[in-house]
Design a protein around this nucleic acid. Structure first.
Lengths: 340, 340
DNA sequence: CCTCCAAAGTTAAACGTTTTTCTTATTATA
DNA sequence: TATAATAAGAAAAACGTTTAACTTTGGAGG
């Protein structure tokens, strides 16, 4: 590899001069500039990133900490991050925490979580990253898991405390939108298969649904609310319960696509036509939603957009370290298919 | 951040000595070692990776080039790579080529492909990675897309030419295994919904099926072979054709889960019970396979294992650059569910 | 009593940049 | 004409390590 010194000799100037033409840090005579440029081309010179970083203290590298890359929305977010960073000449060190298995018995494992996260952070900091993006789930008191640090940090998807910068999606509004959509289609008896009763998304989505219902002058009877656990099985179970109620609801809002799938199966088995006898909607827009019979109308998580925004935020923070924390909530869109 | 010089002063030795105790590169007296260790602890010293790399020429960083992180097996492979690299103190720069959209009209786009790939490679090389892992699809003459280079390179999932190191999974054997499995369940009339007629996996899997059939003394009539395009729709279409044939097959082997899903839908609509009236199997073990009615028996891609092995290989190649190329083909396992 | 060698450290030169300070030459100002 | 100001570039000191080459000391061997 050609070094700056080689170029300098070739052009008959000092390395300082070469540096200045490369970075445009000083005004130089056109002739010299030209000579240096020629020499650069001739030597096929590329600056050595390591030396540059060592000297300048900036690596143009962002550390991305993911709870588990195999987790559903994660890949999309990472994709958005990567695309955006690339465009600005940043690169990305990805570190996977492999936390997928332990998602629901989290509270017992808070210590293990903390350790893995701090390990990850240390690892990234040892790599001299300019900033860190944490990509993870909701519903956990993330701030307690992070030791304080001076590296700029943004949360993507998940969110920390008031003092952190994060970008997430809107639970309330999306659920409200979907509810309004169902109402606009003539439904007045809308039942809900919720997620884990004490989880953050369940509470927020529930709130959105209630809001929209209330605005339309409708009520949501207690019996119409069934709490599941986000899994397929709970979708089937809760739907069975729902079918026993009189008057029977005309639409079921499952808080994720997996439970919606379970729901549709039961409806099928009961000989109910979707959407004629019962409308079903989900949340997440997993791949499975496209392939259900009929294809499921659901809410698409704006994963790429979350990644894009997170990347934009971290770059801003690096540029301006005194910046106040910002919270960004991205709106989800409804994917209309044939289940309502 | 404390530097080596700080530690040296604290311990009253030279930086060389500190370096030697940190790296164990020279025998030193126990007392000195002890003093240095104390000083390191006291100063909370961590070596500066950039300086280390600049001096030694090794970054302990692997560049991972993925065609699209949102693509199906990719996340699993990346997960395996990351896990393995981490254990050996390597880190990973991930670069996403965003090639997902153009997957099937590839041949026209060979130039664009080449450019994006070489951009990615340059980007990684500019980051001084010690090696590169390319994670991508089959069925493309990858070697033509890569400019020659001196950085160690291994292909994961996809594979290059004879001269490259790659790790992939076994198409032939897996398809043969599944065929034998069907035969062992008493099926003698097995139909196939294949993938794209000219694609590599189609050819290999077809070969495996024929092998197994032949060994069992069975034949595969021309009419029992339908070529689709890997998509759900072609699964429904081809199944319809299959149902018109007499004698009707008793089992359908779809070459991926999406087509299997389409197939099952048609079977359902035709009032045929799965697996009593017709057995169905797929390939890939996508998430969707678990949630079909009945759950689909299919072949699981060993994604994590591919990643693990790719990581192992690249580290070996870095350690020993003169190593001869190796090809590793990992066996897939059958996931038994209820569709046969 | 020399000489040699090993042991335990130190010195200093790299690695390839950036950037502050310094030099020299030219032009503008009084 | 003398002087200051500016322009264009060079020198050299960093950034934090590693490592080859050197020094010093203390024994061992003859």
């Amino acid at each position: 590899m050609a070094t700056m010194r080689d170029v300098a000799e070739l052009a008959g100037v000092s390395t300082a001069t070469v540096s200045h033409v490369v970075n445009g840090t000083k005004k130089l005579s056109p002739e010299t500039t030209e000579r240096v440029l020629m020499a650069i081309a001739q030597a096929n010179y590329t600056p050595n990133t390591l030396a540059k970083s060592l000297r300048s203290g900036q690596t143009h590298t962002i550390g991305v900490l993911v709870e588990d890359i195999r987790g559903l929305p994660v890949a999309g977010i990472v994709s958005g991050i990567n695309e955006t960073l690339s465009k600005s000449g940043y690169k990305m060190i990805l570190h996977d925490l492999h936390l997928l298995e332990k998602l629901y018995n989290q509270y017992e494992q808070i210590g293990a979580y903390r350790q893995r996260i701090n390990n990850g952070v240390s690892l990234l900091q040892a790599s001299n990253v300019d900033g860190i993006i944490y990509v993870g789930m909701h519903d956990r008191h993330l701030d307690y898991l992070f030791d304080p640090m001076d590296t700029p940090l943004v949360f993507a998807y998940s969110h920390g405390t008031k003092e952190d910068t994060y970008v997430t999606y809107s639970n309330d509004e999306s659920a409200a939108d979907m509810t309004r959509y169902l109402i606009s289609k003539g439904h007045e008896r809308i039942a809900v298969i919720a997620g884990h009763p004490h989880s953050y998304p369940t509470a927020r989505r529930m709130h959105g649904i209630q809001m929209a219902l209330q605005q339309a002058g409708l009520v949501l009877p207690e019996a119409y609310i069934q709490y599941g656990d986000w899994e397929y099985e709970s979708g089937v179970e809760k739907t069975r319960e729902l079918l026993c109620i009189h008057p029977r609801p005309t639409a079921i809002f499952a808080m994720n696509d997996l439970m919606a799938a379970g729901c549709m199966r039961v409806l099928n088995e009961a000989g109910l036509k979707i959407p004629q006898d019962m409308a079903v909607v989900g949340f997440d827009n997993r791949e499975i939603a496209r392939y259900l019979q009929p294809p499921l109308t659901t809410i698409a998580l704006p994963t790429t957009e979350i990644g894009v925004q997170a990347a934009l935020h971290i770059m801003e923070m690096i540029h301006n370290p005194a910046k106040a924390p910002e919270k960004e909530i991205i709106h989800c869109s409804i994917v209309e298919r044939e289940s309502v």
